[in-house]
Structures are given as structure tokens and as C-alpha cells.
């Protein structure tokens, strides 16, 4: 066993210090604080007692767990759609496009992320609103009699979420597909594999780490998204993060907000764990 000198140890410590500090100050300490806040109940002005009431509230009041269920289901759907749309794009970028085309396509995927999420979402609102561009074009083409409202519904939320998430799916997919030896595809083809069989047995199993990491990132981002569902969904958006925001900001109910925050963390982790079990993947494999 090689002996680690004191100098090396110090270097490692210095290099990791910002990360450790970041974790401690912005992740661990606030979470401990949130946990303690979530476990108390207001009994009178400025008087609090230890209680699980805030957590019970989530299960007792159908509104809250239904909102969570809806958020989770929409997020899963958005993740699946992002995967379905992102996979062919990634495959094209990684395996078919060459040279400049490849880099420009990749750039094209990243371009929307050079503007803020707010601007991107407003872009969609300009397109989809009743007095917006798509509605105008449809009327001009004679395909619609009057203004068409495409905003403020679940489909609009979905479009916005998929659009916002695309990059986070495409990047890991392109990098795993890039590492797939073309020879494997040719060999499978040569041995009698059809396109679909090759996709199922060679390409997808190889891309699995990328698929898993892409899906986890997209799912978590979507679940935690606040702007897109609120702005595009309008009166029916109903997103769980919105509930948390409301509890903190407009209800001054930090206790409830903290509890919801913790429930979001636990339940989303549970969903990812279940997803990994169902697809027989391990988290460790995704960082290979």
C-alpha cells in the first residue's frame, strides 16, 4: 500500500473544500433545518410543538397527494416522451451525422439553453396563446374559424416540459451511443438481426446507462420545475412545487412547506428506486 503524504492529503482537502462547504452550507444544514421545521406544529402565536401533523396532512387531505400523484405521473410521462423523441435525435447525432453536421446538430440542441427558462417559456406562450402565432397561422390558412387557445392545458405543459428537458436527455444519450462500436451494429446485422431486433438487443442495452441517467435527470428536473407548469398550465397547472411555494410564500406556513419538501424528496427517490428495480438497472452503472 502506498503511503499518502501529508502534503497530498492537504491538497485533496483544499481541492474538495469548496465542494464540502457547498454540500454542508447549502444542502445538509438547510435540510436539517427543514426537517426540524417540518416536525413542529403551531399551537399558538410563536408557540410550536413537536408533531407529525404536517406529514399527516399530506395523506389526509386528498388535494395534496392527488397533486403529488398528478405531478409525478405528468413527470413520468414527460420523461418517457423526452426519451422517445430524444433517442432518435441522439442516435442520428451520434451514429449517422458526421463532422460539421454532427457538431451543428448538437449545438442546435443546446441553443435553447442559452436563454433563461423564463424566456423559453414565454416563447411558447407567444406561440400558443389565443392571440398568438400558431392560432394566427391556422386562421390565415383557413383551418380554424376563430382564435384557437392552445395555452393553459396539460398538453401545453407537456410540450414545455419536454422542450425544457430535451438537452438533459440528449447529452447522456449521445455520449453513450457515441461509445457504441459501429462494428457491433454491423455484426448484429450480419448475423441476421433486423433493425428492430438490433435496436432492442444491441443499441438499447448499450445505451442503458445513458437512458437511465437521462431519465433520472429529466424526471427530477421536471418534478421540481416550477415556472413551466405554472406559466403554461395556467389555471389548471396544479404542480407540487407550486404547493410548496405557496405554503412558504403566501401561507407563511413553513412547517407545511418543509414537510412537503421532504415528502417530495422521499417520494421522488422512491419513484426512481422503483423505476430502477423495474428496469433491473443499478445507479452505479450509470456513471461508468
Amino acid at each position: 500500500m502506498e503511503r499518502v503524504s501529508a502534503g497530498t492529503k492537504l491538497t485533496v482537502l483544499v481541492l474538495f473544500a469548496p465542494f464540502i462547504l457547498w454540500m454542508l452550507l447549502l444542502v445538509i444544514l438547510p435540510h436539517i433545518d427543514l426537517l426540524t421545521i417540518s416536525l413542529r406544529e403551531r399551537v399558538a402565536p410563536r408557540v410550536y410543538e413537536f408533531s407529525f401533523k404536517n406529514y399527516m396532512e399530506f395523506f389526509v387531505e386528498p388535494l395534496y397527494w392527488r397533486t403529488f400523484a398528478r405531478t409525478a405521473i405528468m413527470s413520468i410521462l414527460a420523461t418517457v416522451l423526452t426519451l422517445i423523441i430524444g433517442f432518435p435525435i441522439s442516435y442520428y447525432i451520434a451514429k449517422i451525422a458526421r463532422g460539421r453536421l454532427k457538431s451543428s446538430l448538437f449545438l442546435l440542441c443546446m441553443l435553447p439553453f442559452w436563454v433563461s427558462e423564463l424566456v423559453r417559456t414565454f416563447g411558447w406562450m407567444i406561440l400558443l396563446r389565443e392571440s398568438g402565432i400558431i392560432s394566427g397561422v391556422l386562421q390565415w390558412l383557413g383551418l380554424a374559424d376563430g382564435p384557437v387557445e392552445m395555452l393553459y392545458n396539460d398538453a401545453a405543459i407537456m410540450v414545455g416540459l419536454v422542450y425544457t428537458s430535451m438537452l438533459f436527455m440528449v447529452v447522456p444519450l449521445v455520449s453513450t451511443l457515441d461509445s457504441l462500436d459501429d462494428g457491433l451494429i454491423e455484426a448484429a446485422y450480419d448475423l441476421g438481426g433486423s433493425t428492430i431486433a438490433i435496436l432492442r438487443e444491441i443499441v438499447i442495452p448499450h445505451a442503458m446507462p445513458g437512458i437511465v441517467s437521462g431519465c433520472i435527470v429529466v424526471f427530477m428536473l421536471t418534478l421540481g420545475n416550477y415556472l413551466t407548469p405554472t406559466l403554461l398550465g395556467g389555471k389548471d397547472s396544479l404542480w407540487f412545487t407550486e404547493q410548496i411555494y405557496n405554503q412558504f410564500i403566501t401561507r407563511f406556513n413553513w412547517e407545511q412547506g418543509s414537510a412537503f419538501g421532504f415528502l417530495l424528496l422521499l417520494l421522488s427517490s422512491a419513484i426512481i428506486w422503483t423505476g430502477l428495480r423495474l428496469t433491473r438497472q443499478r445507479l452505479q452503472d450509470t456513471i461508468k
Binding site: 444542502v27 438547510p30 427543514l34 433520472i216
Partner: peptide
């Protein structure tokens, strides 16, 4: 492993810690 845990936490920070951090 770490990376994704952080992702989860970033989401958490975004939503629930806005007030504290802000």
C-alpha cells in the same frame, strides 16, 4: 451516484429553499 443525488437536491433547493437562500 453522487451526481444524481445532487440533482435531486438541487431540485429541492430550488423549490423549498428559495426563501431561505433568497
Amino acid at each position: 451516484m453522487f451526481k444524481y443525488k445532487q440533482e435531486g437536491r438541487i431540485v429541492m433547493i430550488k423549490s423549498t429553499l428559495k426563501v431561505l437562500a433568497g
